[in-house]
Nucleic acid binder design. Structure first.
Lengths: 336, 336
DNA sequence: CTGAAAGCGCTTACAG
DNA sequence: CTGAAAGCGCTTACAG
């Protein structure tokens, strides 16, 4: 194991009485080479468990065989399983192509960790795992010219984007509720800097518009971040005659459920609840919570595949939209 | 920005009329060099925003300036915020020393992703983020001779370990309950393959032994993984006269709370609950849940620091034990 | 089909 | 204090 650490292309060449060029060609499959010669080299390699030094290979080709994965370092965000699942999908796909994943953690006001990785030439391309209205990382990457893609949508069409269809998803969920005869529906969402917040809101509004219904402005709460805010909002909504609350993520939904439990308000009898679903945290609650599911690992895989294609100089679609599934559960039962 | 991509040490040397050697020395600070010469080079570098190619530097020094972070790919585990928080601490510390973090995801029966990274010489050292009784990754790394450390304890003293003191933590928590006059305490824990499970169990037993009390065998449930199992156990415990349930992690605790809620069992009046705390998911539940807190980001930082020392050939402590905090909250109130 | 040589961008003995 | 040269382990025109 430890003793083949230093087996190089030169060693093999010498041992086999051929040139390093030949060995290199046998390995890479590039350039003309005799069949017998190739076999001989390949066999030797196999037998001695030779592994090329990817670093040296990278130097010669100006490649690193690494992709950069940019993760948000903000407090709450980090705890969402979304990023972890993304990472799994990305990592798996990268491995298959002999690429590795190098992480850098950024916050909206500090992208220095990303810059370091780029400037040090440590990656061949980058994946951004969320998109902001004012997206400093995207702007920076665009300037450098390095291949990169975003998970999440952006206005800028020149940026390659992969996303789930949050707008349609939220529309469909809302429509389902309207069809049931639930009329007074409230929406609680996170930061408006996140583009996804706006998309979900649009879907919500689409559903109402489709039915020719008006939305109460006071039923929409955005930029909600902590449990205390949720508590206040829920209190207001209960007094309000709200029939259903849609939470834009599971963290918010958890806060809503806790508040309702404290107030001894029964779900779905007194109020209905729905959420966006990334995690298993809501899975076993009772009642089970209606929610929208995305296949986040698939999202990661697809994203990585597209980035790798870009790095190889291939043509890739400017925008890729993945699906979703609306799971109606106990928390929205009733009203026929 | 994009145009200084190719500024090399050779360009600088030529421009300044010195040798590449000199430039290299000015940058690295190694080797004797005239003060004026150094200044001249440094100024040029500053003015032209030169960034050394870390890859080339690495090749020459047989270094990569990357550390490998091994993450578990098992289903449930991935969702625990523990690993994400660890990663933040590690990444931050690594950045400070100009190192980057490269991730590889392994499962107990497939460590090929880790092997690839090692065999490709892509990292200078490795961090294992959990420890198993039969730890394939640790065994493999030990064989290769590469510097590595584990987050979590191991039997093998030749392996450098960093861990929180789970045993003492669980002992103290249990003692607190015993002191309150709570006698019938049950313990629900995860897989026994995880060394941490055993440590927490030991702490639990320590507390009873310290008071000269016997533990009911039937109050201890290990290898519990899913919500259904928890449900059965809780049902049994309720029939049993159990006064308190200690859950070994927040996922299990969440399952316990859900079951109790379904059964309309009141916490803490009818039964008391305590947990181990990594996340904010239990934070806003009502009642608030008594739990043990660890500073996971600090754990990550410390671990990274120690690994970097090892890589630099420094002496490091074989075992580093970090603290904890027991937070008594509403879920264990009562009994004086 | 095969090889000698230059090159990727750095570092580091070895001389001076 | 400074430099010419070899080397890290690979790739890739250029010849033959």
């Amino acid at each position: 194991m430890a003793d083949n650490r230093n087996l190089t292309i030169g060693d093999i060449a010498e041992e086999l009485g051929v040139s390093k060029t030949t060995v290199s060609r046998a390995i890479s499959g590039k350039g003309r080479i005799g069949n017998k010669t190739r076999e001989k080299v390949l066999q030797y390699i196999e037998a001695h468990d030779y592994r090329p030094n990817v670093i040296a290979k990278g130097l010669a080709q100006s490649r690193t065989y690494n992709i950069g994965l940019v993760l948000p370092g903000d407090y709450h965000i980090v705890e969402l399983p979304f990023f972890q699942k993304c990472m799994l999908g990305i990592s798996r796909t990268a491995s298959e192509k002999d690429y590795d994943v190098l992480i850098s953690v950024v916050t909206p006001d500090d992208i220095s960790k990303l810059q370091r990785v780029i400037v040090n030439h440590k990656v061949d391309g980058v994946i951004l795992t969320r998109t902001l209205v004012e997206d400093a990382p995207a702007r920076y990457l665009k300037e450098t010219g390095i291949p990169f893609v975003t998970i999440g949508s952006m206005q800028d069409d020149s940026i390659v984007q992969i996303d789930n269809d949050h707008r349609s998803a939220c529309r469909e969920l809302t429509e389902n509720m309207l069809k049931k005869g639930v009329n007074r529906i409230a929406l609680i969402g996170g930061r408006q800097d996140y583009i996804v917040t706006g998309n979900r809101l649009s879907g919500f509004l689409d559903a109402f518009a489709g039915k020719g219904r008006a939305v109460c402005e006071e039923d929409i709460y955005l930029d909600v971040e902590d449990a205390r805010q949720v508590e206040e909002i829920v209190t207001k909504l209960l007094a309000n005659g709200t029939e259903c609350i849609i939470a834009m993520d599971d963290h918010l939904c958890g806060c809503v459920l806790n508040t309702l439990q404290q107030r001894r308000v029964k779900v779905p009898e007194q109020i209905k609840i729905a959420s966006f679903y990334d995690s298993s945290f809501l899975e076993n609650r009772s009642p089970s919570v209606t929610s929208i599911r995305f296949d986040v690992e698939e999202l990661g895989e697809m994203t990585c595949k597209i980035l790798l294609d870009m790095i190889d100089g291939g043509e890739v679609p400017a925008r890729t939209l993945l699906g979703y599934r609306v799971s109606m559960r106990d928390s929205t039962e009733g009203y026929v």
